[in-house]
């Protein structure tokens, strides 16, 4: 077991910007909800949010609240972070089972970096970033976590 568990970047190191297309994602996160845009005409999910549905070019979307479950599609372990000498960040590309085709690039937190695997089951959490926003991040899914969430 690694001594150091993975973490997210410190809040002051992360700034986000929004526009009218992406803001619902971040407003939901601020309420500790994970949401994704689904095309209101053809049902195709897309992330990041973009103005048009790439499948049918519609601009109508429904913002769907997701379960928060995810799985690791791929990841990188970054240890050499300036100013955070002992920190380990696991940057992960995650699939969202209830938003097929949509992915997020995020962090796996509170994990032993040596134990992270492609396919690993995750559940969402929210980590503070600058200006009062919350960033959706993910931690390993365990039945205990499931009990707490459910």
């Amino acid at each position: 077991m690694s001594a150091v568990l993975s973490r997210a970047l410190p809040p002051e190191r992360v700034q986000i910007a929004t526009d009218h297309v992406t803001e619902p994602f971040w407003q939901a996160a601020r309420e500790r909800r994970l949401a994704a845009p689904r095309c209101a005409d053809c049902g195709h999910f897309r992330l990041p949010p973009t103005p048009f549905c790439p499948e049918c070019q519609s601009q109508k979307v429904d913002w769907v609240q997701l379960s928060g479950r995810a799985s690791v599609f791929s990841f990188s372990v970054v240890r050499d972070i300036p100013g955070l000498d002992d920190a380990v960040v696991v940057a992960a590309v995650v699939d969202l089972p209830d938003a097929p085709g949509a992915r997020l690039v995020s962090n796996v937190i509170d994990a032993d970096p040596d134990e992270v695997r492609i396919g690993m089951e995750l559940v969402v959490d929210f980590s503070p970033v600058s200006d009062g926003w919350l960033l959706p991040v993910f931690r390993p899914f365990t039945p205990a976590v499931e009990g707490k969430e459910g």
Partner: peptide
């Protein structure tokens, strides 16, 4: 500088192009 588009990747800590491509290599 953060942009609405980059805000969906930058916070993860993949600070350089090689960090980003390491994820492709892993896959």
């Amino acid at each position: 500088e953060p942009t609405p588009e980059k805000s969906f990747i930058q916070p993860a800590g993949l600070t350089g192009p090689g960090h980003l491509m390491s994820v492709l290599a892993r896959r």
